[in-house]
Design a protein around this nucleic acid. Sequence first.
DNA 1: CGATTTGTTGACCGGTGTCAATGTGGGTGG
DNA 2: CCACCCACATTGACACCGGTCAACAAATCG
Lengths: 272, 272
Amino acid sequence: MARKLKTFQTISRSDLAWCRKLRLHSELPDENVAALRSIVSPVRVLPEDLVIVREGDLSTQCCVILSGFAYRSKVAENGKRQILSFHIAGDMPDLQGLPLKRMDHDLTTLWEARLGFIKHEALESVLEPRPTLARALWRETLVDALLFRQWIVNLGTRSTAGRMAYLIGELRQRLATMGLVVNEQFDFPITQSKLADALGLSIVHVNRVLQTFRTEGILDLKRRVVTLKDSKRLSSSADLTAWRTMLSARKIEIRSRRIRPAGQSKGTGRAG
Amino acid sequence: MARKLKTFQTISRSDLAWCRKLRLHSELPDENVAALRSIVSPVRVLPEDLVIVREGDLSTQCCVILSGFAYRSKVAENGKRQILSFHIAGDMPDLQGLPLKRMDHDLTTLWEARLGFIKHEALESVLEPRPTLARALWRETLVDALLFRQWIVNLGTRSTAGRMAYLIGELRQRLATMGLVVNEQFDFPITQSKLADALGLSIVHVNRVLQTFRTEGILDLKRRVVTLKDSKRLSSSADLTAWRTMLSARKIEIRSRRIRPAGQSKGTGRAG
DNA sequence: CGATTTGTTGACCGGTGTCAATGTGGGTGG
DNA sequence: CCACCCACATTGACACCGGTCAACAAATCG
């Protein structure tokens, strides 16, 4: 039996965390935030695994996650699915659709999520007289790109355990800024199969890595809840450095990177 | 002896390919393009391996590659360097610095490159009365993000040969739109060490993959020049990845992605 | 011409994918 | 309420891709 898609007219008090988040990256006048908030309609609750927009679609609206989880994914020619990113409350995962229109990937709910939708038309007319707000949204899409770059580093340079640790660590950090981490515990309703698709690993290996984390008392991921057992290494630094060093404790050498001595023919200096 | 950094006052006739490229993604009035062109100053020729901006820097200007090559990279905590993307004539690889300011990665010349610099101040004042142009630049940064997503798919889902094939294939395509592919041949002055850092592989393995491509008559990468011998098999060799999974025959279906029958409790439909 | 970087090749083995079998919990229908 | 079922999680055996080490060749540069 399909869950009902409840529709609400306005965003509720608890949904305002989204506005707080926008202001984390940009200074915005109250009026701008209010204008943006006023065009969020409708608000819906979507069930798990529902495709919000599909690759190839033309966007006509974008959404903001008020609560719950979503993920972006893409299917390669060989049929393997790659999960590109996970999204949490406060994220606008298809904001890029405003300038780009054509979706290059799927956006799907990872779990029941409360979504606010914003029509592109309405958004355009709100942005037109508010360059500061437009700039803030541009910035949001760039933060998005920044996370993609970090994810590339993650896939390309880290051990499998390191990748997993990074995923959890990044998520913890993002959830924490939204106040969604309590007692070093947070909701993350993911299957190992999806973890595998995100990390580019086999399901079996994902399972083994999680086992290791459990037996070594690092973290536990069970029943849709992540419990960080050794949070010291996490909380010590915002950029997870200690966390990662600890886990990838194998190779500290610098691979294929030559530091040229100063004064060589090939520039080591800086373009001004 | 360091090569001289020649400085020119204006961009030359051959540099205008950049403007053509901007118009590929957006419809722009002549006046807008002219305004943008007018603030490119100075134009410099930088030698190989010169850092243009470094991770952590505050951007005060951005650059446009008029000719030559550059790459973006990031060093992970374990010391491994990940190359995030390669950039060619027409690209503005640090445009994101305009809204974001703080660089999250390095930008370096891969080879001698002719770069035009644009001061952020000047750019802001050109963009302020030209929302269409501003939108076009936003779009450029989103195309950038799109390529990053594809690169994630590449790293996460393809075999090593497939990854290499994809890299060359993407580059071919981008160079072709700039008219830089002649006779299925193009300049790409890269070392195997850098290829390794881009693909997340060891240098030795990169070498072996290139050997395979050579002996199988797919492509040849030598002396800074890529020669495509069999571009059909190249593009399908990203698919050649599938030879492993195809041998196990059964699955054209998507791995770890279940299509639920309609009417189940978990949605398969589309959020409208 | 020597020095340094880059490319090439072989031997070895550890990390991961694949296959296959089994356990487990929650939902569903009788 | 129970029995079944299905998705998901877990575990072991085994093969092989790809990293590491090491030595050498070739190209490039001063």
